[in-house]
């Protein structure tokens, strides 16, 4: 009888722990900016999908390339999809991996974290450690991050004629709030 009770307690603990492990988001914001001498290009998307497994500290983010809006003209958007990102062949960008720091998700507050994982853009994978701010809020987990992506790292060539209009270093920012699934 003692063992049974013990096991029951164990089970209850265990099931309580299992409950809200995965946090997700469907409409995170991603924006990017190219600052070249002759042209400034801005675009953003509100379709960032994210998932965070609290028990494992694992995460995954995905964004559909065609969902980016903004740009300086519709033609520029077309070129972005057709010539640079090749969105038909590589429809999404992905970042997935693990948060290096251990975080006490039961405590509200801001944490400065490093996310280590594979960043796949234009079909080219890069191992990256990206610094982010993670905030455990009342409702969920907010992630804010700013980092840069080099076009040359992802096999996106810049034609000579647009060298002054397109920066190799693209500034990306992320702002999303994940909620318990």
């Amino acid at each position: 009888m003692h063992y049974a009770r013990l096991l029951m307690v164990l089970f209850i603990c265990c099931s309580a722990f299992v409950q809200p492990l995965i946090y997700t988001s469907n409409n995170g914001l991603v924006s990017f900016r190219s600052e070249a001498p002759f042209e400034l290009i801005n675009a953003s998307s509100k379709e960032l999908k994210g998932a965070l497994d609290l028990s494992k500290n694992n995460f995954a983010f995905r964004i559909r390339i065609r969902s980016f809006e903004g740009f300086n003209s519709p033609l520029q958007k077309e070129h972005f999809n057709e010539n640079y990102m090749e969105s038909e062949k590589f429809p999404e960008a992905v970042f997935n991996g693990k948060i290096i720091e251990t975080i006490d998700y039961s405590k509200k507050g801001k944490y400065s974290i490093r996310a280590k994982g594979k960043l796949i853009i234009h079909g080219v994978e890069q191992e990256r450690i990206i610094k982010s701010d993670l905030e455990v809020t009342e409702k969920g987990i907010r992630i804010i991050s700013q980092f840069s992506v080099l076009l040359s790292d992802h096999a996106i060539p810049i034609p000579r004629v647009v060298k002054e209009k397109l920066a190799n270093e693209i500034n990306v920012s992320i702002n999303t709030e994940l909620y318990a699934k």
């Binding site: 164990l10 099931s15 995965i22 998932a51 965070l52």
Partner: peptide, 18 residues
Amino acid sequence: SCICTFVYAQDIDLNQML
């Protein structure tokens, strides 16, 4: 408890899920 440990231990591929 076996079942619940199994659920807990199951590795969920978040990327695939998304």
